[in-house]
């Protein structure tokens, strides 16, 4: 029973959602499934957030390595939670009560967002500039013919975007204009790149159809058939 019902639920839900694509009166079910997911995800946060708190509390109580930083996480979590849930300092609270916009300008929630979360995100994101440099260096030591093709293609596209690249082939006569780096990079992007993208996208679609079928038909069920704990 405990194993069969989840597999049945997956089968029925998946089947209905596929059919709903072709049955107009069922279209509403597809819309609701998306909202259902959001609601379930909020409930699931009690489990996820609970795990986050548990692990950090354990770190502090058992004085594990780096336990001091767990305190910072816990304090940050509770402060932000309180600021948001109670909409503290939210200027719209006066008129609207709890219907006030969570991210209203001037609210403490928004202030912490601007001063802490936004810059942290942006900084972490900008680290990519360094990592793409080290990855490029790695790609330069092309290990095999495939990697060489990747490298040459990347190099042409990169050159095509830079002034140096354009100047370097500027001397070419008109009949060789195809090989001017800016034209060559455009051609690579618009033709060869497009072909590869299409092959990947069609492959992905087939992969998803096949995996979805395996899941719906209950052949792929490792994620559901947990024992009778």
């Amino acid at each position: 029973m405990k194993r069969t019902i989840p597999i049945l639920i997956t089968f029925i839900t998946g089947g209905i959602i596929v059919l709903a694509e072709f049955i107009p009166p069922w279209a509403i079910l597809r819309e609701h499934v998306l909202i259902y997911f959001q609601i379930i995800a909020v409930f699931a946060f009690f489990l996820g957030g609970g795990s986050l708190l548990k692990i950090n509390c354990q770190k502090v109580v058992r004085k594990r390595e780096d336990w001091q930083f767990a305190i910072v996480t816990l304090v940050g979590f509770f402060i932000m939670l309180a600021l948001g849930l109670f909409k503290m300092g939210n200027p719209e609270m006066v008129d609207l009560g709890f219907a006030a916009d969570l991210n209203a300008s001037g609210s403490w929630f928004k202030n912490v967002f601007d001063a802490v979360k936004a810059p942290l995100s942006a900084s972490m994101y900008s680290l990519l500039a360094f990592f793409i440099a080290s990855a490029s260096y790695r790609a330069f030591r092309a290990k095999n013919s495939d990697a060489t093709v990747l490298l040459v293609s990347a190099f042409i596209i990169l050159l095509g975007q830079t002034f140096v690249g354009v100047v370097s082939t500027g001397w070419m006569p008109e009949w060789m204009s195809f090989f001017k780096v800016e034209n060559l990079s455009l051609w690579l992007l618009a033709k060869a790149n497009l072909a590869g993208q299409r092959a990947i996208l069609i492959g992905i679609a087939l992969g998803i159809i096949s995996m979805s079928l395996r899941v719906i038909l209950g052949i792929e069920r490792t994620h559901l058939s947990g024992g009778d704990e």
Partner: peptide, 10 residues
């Protein structure tokens, strides 16, 4: 595919 990846990378 490698040309495609190179193009995205660049």
């Amino acid at each position: 595919l490698m040309v495609t990846f190179g193009a995205s990378f660049g």
